[in-house]
């Protein structure tokens, strides 16, 4: 399996939300729906507080429970990569994948009715481009690349820096990494 990863530096992210706008523009996500979002996590007791911004989306899990639960094969791993896509022509809108996702990263497309989600902009990845959110980020805190290649920027960063993933205890093996 070709292993793509997104790496996001929480020390550089300022929570501007440009990734969200870039995604909506690139993928024509209808009003009121979002494939990505930003979380502000605050820890500590005043005045000793620390804040972390995280741009979040589908984690394109290696162990993708949404793919396992889909009754029709509509949710699938794209071309033997870890990129999880939904084929609208196979989707019945049963919403099993929404229940199966521990990150609540899926949505019901309106007015279509099929299930939609972040695609890691596979249509751009195919052309050798970064996903729209990564290429737009004004603080350049987002990186995208192949984990299979030890010399890639993402591999390099994960070797050098401390990082975490969201809710690894779910066993889903997520592929969006946060540098801490």
């Amino acid at each position: 399996m070709t292993h793509y990863a997104m790496v996001i530096d929480t020390r550089l992210c300022i929570g501007c939300g440009d990734c969200v706008i870039a995604c909506k523009t690139e993928n024509k996500v209808p009003e009121g729906l979002n494939r990505d979002w930003v979380v502000e996590a605050t820890r500590g007791t005043y005045p000793d507080l620390s804040t972390e911004f995280r741009s979040e989306r589908c984690n394109h899990c290696s162990h993708a429970t949404c793919v396992y639960m889909c009754p029709t094969g509509a949710s699938h791993h794209w071309k033997d990569t870890n990129i999880v896509l939904v084929d609208p022509n196979k989707c019945t809108g049963c919403k099993a994948c929404i229940a199966a996702c521990p990150y609540d990263a899926r949505l019901v497309m309106h007015p279509g009715g099929y299930i939609d989600k972040c695609t890691f902009c596979h249509h751009r990845v195919e052309k050798g481009l970064d996903p729209a959110c990564v290429s737009t980020c004004p603080t350049r805190c987002m990186y995208f690349g192949l984990l299979d290649d030890p010399s890639s920027e993402v591999s390099e960063l994960l070797r050098r820096r401390d990082y975490k993933v969201l809710a690894p205890e779910t066993g889903n093996r997520p592929n969006v990494y946060y540098l801490t």
């Binding site: 929570g15 939300g17 969200v20 009121g32 729906l33 979002n34 979002w37 930003v38 979380v39 502000e40 996590a41 605050t42 820890r43 911004f53 949505l107 019901v108």
Partner: peptide, 11 residues
């Protein structure tokens, strides 16, 4: 420890 959405995720 408080985690809040700061962009609208209203799916």
């Amino acid at each position: 420890h408080e985690e809040i959405l700061i962009t609208a995720r209203s799916n």
